[in-house]
């Protein structure tokens, strides 16, 4: 029971990660690929934040009577990773706009057909 309920966050991380990864690999729609990539990255954010959590831990502010603090560093690290994720998503979507202009489609198999590859 402990392994399922106690590690609930980590199970969610694994499930999200696999969903995201599967969408990136299996879907031929470019926007869905980017969304899949996003889910994949988000699962890692949750992983980091879950690592920081301590049962009964307080916010990391010095105050009398509190001995357990939640580690704030993973949150800060993940803030950086979120920014990176947004930049990647933005760049990916911008590329899709230009791909749409150049090929008039955003389906991967149709793009390959138009290029004569595959």
């Amino acid at each position: 029971m402990d392994t399922i309920a106690g590690l609930f966050n980590y199970w969610i991380v694994i499930v999200l990660m696999m969903i995201g990864f599967y969408v990136v690999i299996a879907d031929s729609n470019l926007i869905k690929k980017i969304i899949g990539l996003n889910i994949f990255q988000t699962s890692v954010f949750i992983l980091y934040i879950s690592v920081a959590k301590i049962d009964g831990g307080a916010a990391p502010i010095l105050e009398d009577g509190i001995t357990n603090y939640v580690n704030p560093l993973p949150h800060v690290l993940i803030l950086t990773a979120i920014v990176v994720g947004i930049a990647t998503t933005a760049l990916g979507l911008a590329l899709i706009v230009r791909i749409k202009e150049a090929y008039n489609t955003i389906e991967e198999d149709e793009i390959h057909e138009k290029d004569g590859t595959l």
Partner: peptide, 20 residues
């Protein structure tokens, strides 16, 4: 070449997975 765009997209997907 317009294929530069699809090449970039593929690199973006794989590069991001690698970095993640």
């Amino acid at each position: 070449d317009r294929r530069a765009l699809t090449a970039t997209f593929q690199y973006l997907i794989m590069g991001t997975i690698g970095a993640t």
